[in-house]
């Protein structure tokens, strides 16, 4: 393909299916289990979040994933980043993945901003040396120098998001997974963070990107996967898939 230029695979999703068992009542204690068993009421309902999804992402690709709510986009991202194990099929990853699914999930309120930079960085999989060398950059970018030794519980939510964003985007990862473009903080910081995201995504990194904003997808991605009820409806060139998606949208 592509005039004989071999593209290097970064992620291969091979026949991935994800089935959830939905219980009609969520059983979370021994007592409930006993009573439910006694009444023979433990019923399971199968829910197919993903059905036989396969595609390959090459080095340097910016792949957009589109689809209606509940099409399985977030489940797919979670499976690719290794958080969930698929019920069938497998995922092959060619490099370390930095998932940016939700910011600041590993923060500890009792620790200072300084300590949290190291903790959160470790959770995201950065090395100690890397964090030490980037520490000043993170602090400068978040504009939190005066408060960096204050416990996190005294931070405002905007400050928290700024710190989390600065830690998450300091890397230049080989594979980046983004669930919606993250714009945080006040208007000025939002502009700054959006710009940083665009830089990251256009800098040769392989990106998997979920968004509801079709224009953004068209602008940023070179390939698009369209998920519909857990199945791949269409996959290919960004403009082509986006046009088809828009058309189907208008028909409804």
């Amino acid at each position: 393909m592509d005039q004989g230029i071999m593209k290097e695979d970064m992620i291969r999703v091979e026949n991935v299916s994800m089935h959830f068992r939905l219980m009609n009542d969520r059983i979370s204690s021994i007592k409930e289990m006993m009573t439910a068993l006694a009444r023979r009421k433990v019923k399971f309902k199968e829910f197919h979040a993903l059905e036989d999804v396969s595609f390959t992402v090459y080095r340097g690709d910016v792949v957009g994933i589109i689809g209606h709510n509940g099409a399985g986009k977030s489940t797919l991202l979670k499976i690719i980043s290794g958080i969930m194990k698929p019920s069938k099929g497998k995922v092959w990853r060619g490099a370390n993945i930095v998932p940016m699914l939700e910011l600041g999930s590993g923060f500890d309120n009792d620790l200072s901003g300084h300590e949290n930079i190291y903790l959160n960085g470790a959770i995201l999989g950065y090395s100690k040396e890397f964090l030490q060398s980037k520490y000043d950059e993170i602090v400068a970018y978040s504009e939190l120098e005066p408060f960096i030794h204050t416990p996190l519980r005294n931070y405002s939510s905007g400050m928290l998001m700024r710190l989390a964003f600065s830690i998450a985007t300091v890397v230049e990862p080989e594979i980046l997974i983004v669930d919606e473009v993250l714009a945080v903080g006040d208007e000025r910081f939002q502009e700054k963070s959006k710009k940083r995201m665009m830089e990251l995504m256009s800098g040769g990194t392989t990106v998997l990107f979920v968004s509801h904003n079709i224009e953004q997808i068209r602008e940023m991605c070179n390939r698009v996967v369209w998920l519909d009820h857990g199945q791949v409806r269409m996959i290919g060139d960004a403009d082509e898939v986006c046009d088809a998606y828009r058309e189907q949208f208008l028909e409804q």
């Binding site: 009792d110 903790l119 959770i123 999989g125």
Partner: peptide, 18 residues
């Protein structure tokens, strides 16, 4: 190792922080 180190340090620090 870095994550383990950080998690143990976190538990130890927060336990006696206040």
């Amino acid at each position: 190792s870095f994550l383990i180190e950080q998690l143990v340090a976190r538990d130890f620090k927060t336990k006696y922080k206040r």
